[in-house]
Write a protein that binds this DNA or RNA. Structure first.
Lengths: 351, 351
DNA sequence: TGCACGATGTTAAACGATTAACACGAGGAG
DNA sequence: CTCCTCGTGTTAATCGTTTAACATCGTGCA
């Protein structure tokens, strides 16, 4: 009883060809009704539950699944509203075509990856049985991106540097919107909190800016551009995109003797954490200190956070569609963003 | 250039056997260093990115992935803190062994499933290339559970009815804890809000109780048991586990002329929504009305919700471990729960 | 000198399915 | 009566690997 039951054993037991059994499961119209039900009966009797998934994938070349690469701890990703919204969008489109979502963990970049970590992570990427993949925010030179395109898999990303298919927003322009908004409120001393691996609160030097995530860099460029030329802009690491590191970054910034009048964060999670920290220090946010976020996730509304809305859900839907139907969709789409002004920003108080 | 490059073509190009190429990628120690680097060089030159995932899965019988069945819209699941915590726990354990997570959508039960829907969903379950699966909360007779066990895959669940491997909590005992707590506060008229597909706010009759999710049913039994025998318990559908339906259920319950003094919800999401609705009606929660939740997700703390804590994260970790190492782990584990009393419950006001 | 042995490659048999291409008989059209 | 088509079933090639078993060959040791 230990022997596995296969298409062949069913065929033998039923006294038909393997083709017939295959057709019974995949193209019932190809068989006479009697034949089909006889085969299914035999299959049930033998405890055969249908064609093996791996074998079928190999033979047909389709996996009915698409991968999503995660370069942060998955357990953390599940607490990031941006990620969840994106996954939701992907799932919505995929559910229609009964396609599964494969979450592939890649060693998070903490302080440079060891070779062994990269190798192991790459093994996971190589072993994933998928028809395509989403690599949100990864650049062309990321090992996972390379592995995926080496495999010849359709790949969709959201980085501006992407050479292949991508769904983007105009991060620079969004930055300009934030910069102009703050400029209009007479802010001339702004801290920009970027999500970057590294200790939250640390100042990011001009040379280190090159190593930021592309979207951070672009937003930063935009913010500078939107502010008057003589404005002071300091760039501060926000660590991972989590409340705790947002609070830490806020603490560092607000402890400075010459603290800025406004803080522009890379995400609503960071922004909301900064608001919280400021409130905890007795500051009146929107008057003593202005704070902006990014994304406009639900959290932003409840925190009264001025932010830039980007259609994350739509981004996910679109990415999925691009993967499912590479020919029927454009290679590159730019989605609109919109500045959403709430109570967390206000004019610089006269002194 | 259209022809795919395979292990064989690399072998031919390098003038070695396919076995050598395979070893070069999988067991470098089996080959001399020169041979290995020569093969890798040829592979790179031909643009060969390593053994094909599907073929490898077929041959080795391993997929390095485990599935998670979702019987709700994925896009909704991603907003459910319980689900996210569970996924987080799973991911934490799986990341260690470089195993991916496959999210498999199954047609949500709305008003009975059509045959076609079930067939299509089952196809997705059958096509998934996985080594095992998690089916949280599904019963033995769910089609997905049947399909999975027919496939002979290790399966882990969290239902009390499960015949196979499972990680559970003692839902009945947790219910007793809630019932006793409310009884101690002199509540004798309690509405229990269960998550069940159906219109939120509708009364669930005694016969319909049999069709509830097993965990709901068990908690309900416990609550009745913990309350005095003469207490009135009405069971109300909470719809899906979402804020909106929680508010709807609350509205229906609180609109009744003889409204209960306490509402016990099946989840913190529902509980928090009920608190919110009650506040909106000008009620003082914890005095005019007591509310309890379930799970103790972060939301519960910020809503001041009395609830039962269950170690969801640990549940996920354990489930993953059971799947990765079926022999080294027990078949059935019961995790402890704990009543957490906060401000949302209080004594029945004297009249 | 003889021989067992470790290191390194190769042979070849699976793994479990899908699907063109073909064969065959029955029924309909001309 | 012949020819064509349509409906059903079969043959057999193929998908791209992995890995047990075997062959070969220089070495160290008695």
């Amino acid at each position: 009883m230990g022997i596995r039951v296969t298409l062949r054993s069913v065929a033998e037991a039923a006294g038909v060809s393997t083709a017939a059994v295959s057709y019974a499961f995949n193209r019932p119209d190809r068989l006479s009704p009697e034949m089909q039900s006889r085969i299914l009966a035999v299959a049930r009797e033998l405890g055969y539950s249908g064609p093996d998934a791996a074998a079928r994938s190999l033979r047909t070349g389709r996996a009915n699944a698409i991968g999503v690469i995660f370069t942060t701890e998955l357990t953390y990703a599940f607490s990031d509203p941006y990620v969840l919204a994106l996954l939701g969008g992907l799932a919505e489109t995929l559910a229609h075509s009964r396609t599964s979502l494969v979450l592939i963990p890649f060693a998070p970049v903490v302080e440079g990856l060891t070779d062994a970590e990269v190798r192991q992570s790459l093994a996971a990427v190589h072993r994933a049985v998928i028809d395509g993949a989403v690599a949100d925010g990864l650049t062309d030179d990321h090992p996972a991106v390379r592995a995926l395109s080496d495999r010849g898999l359709p790949l969709v990303r959201s980085s501006e540097t992407a050479t292949g298919r991508c769904v983007l927003i105009d991060d620079r322009q969004a930055g300009v919107d934030i910069g102009r908004h703050l400029a209009g409120l007479r802010h001339r001393d702004v801290a920009v909190v970027v999500s970057s691996p590294g200790e939250p609160g640390r100042i990011v030097s001009r040379v280190d800016e090159a190593a930021l995530y592309p979207y951070s860099r672009n937003r930063l460029v935009g913010i500078r551009q939107g502010l008057p030329a003589d404005a002071r802009v300091r760039v501060v690491s926000g660590g991972s995109n989590a409340s705790a590191s947002g609070r830490a970054a806020a603490a560092a910034i607000l402890a400075a003797p010459d603290r800025p009048t406004a803080i522009a964060a890379d995400s609503d999670v960071l922004g909301a954490a900064i608001v919280e920290a400021a409130l905890g220090m007795g500051l009146h946010v929107g008057r003593d200190l202005s704070v902006t976020g990014f994304d406009d996730v639900p959290l932003a509304a409840s925190a009264g956070l001025t932010t830039v809305r980007q259609p994350i859900h739509e981004k996910g839907r679109l990415m999925a569609r691009m993967l499912l139907d590479p020919d029927g969709t454009p290679n590159r789409v730019t989605l609109p963003t919109e500045l959403v002004v709430r109570s967390s920003t206000g004019p610089v108080p006269a002194r």
